[in-house]
């Protein structure tokens, strides 16, 4: 079971600033463990961010994104109570979706 994505949303000057920290190993499949065994690739491939049901950002990741990926960006407008949903799917088909309300 994956850990929640930490999401921060701040209303600022007519925009909503979003910061998020995903919990994921982002293994590229080339690294070896202490016994010299190759660690299989395991990385987030697809991310979507929605506000009140509308997609504001759709992203594809490769394994060059760092472990526990970080994203920050800004969307126009917004109000207290907006629902922000951050979803991901990885190369093993695991998915996760986390929701916050803009304070």
């Amino acid at each position: 079971m994956s850990a929640p994505t930490r999401i921060r949303a701040t209303l600022k000057e007519g925009a909503t600033e979003l910061r998020m920290l995903f919990s994921h190993p982002m293994e590229n499949g080339l690294r070896k463990d202490a016994e010299g065994q190759r660690i299989p690739a395991h990385f987030i491939m697809e991310v979507s961010v929605r506000r009140n049901g509308e997609i504001v950002l759709a992203a594809d990741f490769g394994p060059s994104i760092s472990t526990n990926p970080y994203l920050a960006f800004s969307i126009a407008g917004g109000a207290a109570g907006d629902e922000i949903v951050v979803s991901w799917r990885d190369n093993r088909g695991e998915t996760r979706s986390d929701t916050i309300r803009v304070a």
Binding site: E54, A58, A59, S64, I65, L71, I75, A76
Partner: peptide, 28 residues
């Protein structure tokens, strides 16, 4: 894109009209 990495494309972001055209992240 990170030219010297094993796979070159790190991420692709498709922006809605609502999104400011700027993104911050961390890469290997």
């Amino acid at each position: 894109l990170i030219e010297e990495n094993p796979w070159k494309v790190a991420a692709s972001f498709r922006l809605s009209g609502a999104m400011a055209p700027a993104i911050q992240t961390r890469v290997k």
